[in-house]
Simulated assay, not measured.
Amino acid sequence: MRKYEVLRAVVILQAVCMVVLSVVVIIKVWPGNDRQLDGRPQTNVGSGEETTEPSKPGQTPITDPSQQSGGSRIIAKVGKEIITLADLEGELHSQYGDAVLRTLMVHKAIDLEAAASELSVPAEEQSRELDKMIEGYDSEEHFYEVMQEQLGMSKEQVLEDLRYRLLLEKIVVRSIPVSDEEVDRYITDHPEEFNEKMQLHLQWIITETMKEANSVMGLLSDGEDFAEMAHAYSIDSFTADTGGDLGLIEKDDPFYNREMMETASRLRVAEIAGPIKVDGGYAVIRLIERQMTTNMTGSRLRDTVRKQLALERADSVTKVENELLDKYDAVKTE
């Protein structure tokens, strides 16, 4: 299971690198890049519109308009200093170029191997995996909003990235045998992983003292909005700006205070409870919704366990990627 989670993390990192590459592409084609920073159109050599401005003290004179074409185009100024497109591209390339190039090469190698081995990702399989990723978010729309805000990934990019991850998993596990007896034993030994579970969608407000928490409770009982109170009074910087929203949490999640989760499981929707002593202070909580996860059975359960056991035994992601690159003679030409 640990390698499975590492695989997820690596793919997310690859996605971030692709975002960096997209920044370079956007800069190259963004409408309006034919204008200077002050809004005046660029002039072209031979157009008959060349102009030469006297340079200010300390500035590098730009007497030849051709110097502002291509990579020499000025895209920012800081005081008397200028930053060109070439400066930006050079910095992005030096920091992220190798990682982005490797990602592109790996994706090409995955496509070739998938075609050669007749591997594909059915829509139903991709949809099930997407449902797992969306768990804990308010909705599918909210999930895509977070992906856009935090990783700069559009819905199409998320789905494409997921497709590559699932293809790579198929390539990784295809040669790792897992017997039916091993699958049965794992299901018997770990029933808690596959049983129906309660999930609670919570908001919280964390205060330093019980007195402050009681004051918050009083204001809430007077009709104050919970999200606004969290924004104004919660000392939890990770959730205060989102109204104290914790998303969906499993009732027995070990990372949250047990007393708080037990209390939350007994609340009615929209009901508030507190103060509850937690790490870092005192919590006032509100239940937004309660959900029950469906338990897996039959062939879907067995296939899931078989893949999970195979991934735990698999080589590292980097090693598998390197083997694919070697197999398809991947080389840098520059």
Rank of each mutant, 00 (worst) to 15 (best):
G152V: 03
S127V: 08
L130I: 02
M153G: 03
Y144H: 05
D138R: 10
L130D: 00
V121A: 06
V146Q: 10
E125Y: 10
L130V: 05
E140V: 10
M153N: 08
Y144E: 03
S127C: 07
Q157S: 05
V146T: 07
E156H: 14
H142Y: 13
M153C: 10
E125C: 03
E141S: 12
E149L: 08
K155C: 03
E140M: 08
Q150H: 08
Y137I: 00
S154P: 00
E125V: 11
V121T: 05
V158W: 01
K132I: 11
E141K: 09
G136Q: 04
S127E: 15
Q150K: 11
M133G: 06
E129K: 07
E149M: 04
H142C: 04
E129P: 09
M133W: 13
V146K: 13
M153S: 07
D131Q: 14
V146M: 13
E129L: 06
F143K: 04
V158C: 09
E129I: 11
V121M: 04
E135L: 15
Q126V: 06
S154C: 03
A123Q: 14
E156T: 14
E135M: 14
S154L: 00
Q148G: 07
S127G: 02
K132R: 15
R128T: 01
E135I: 13
E149D: 11
E125M: 12
D138E: 12
Q148T: 13
V158K: 06
E124Y: 04
H142F: 10
E156S: 10
E145N: 15
V121G: 04
S154H: 01
E141D: 10
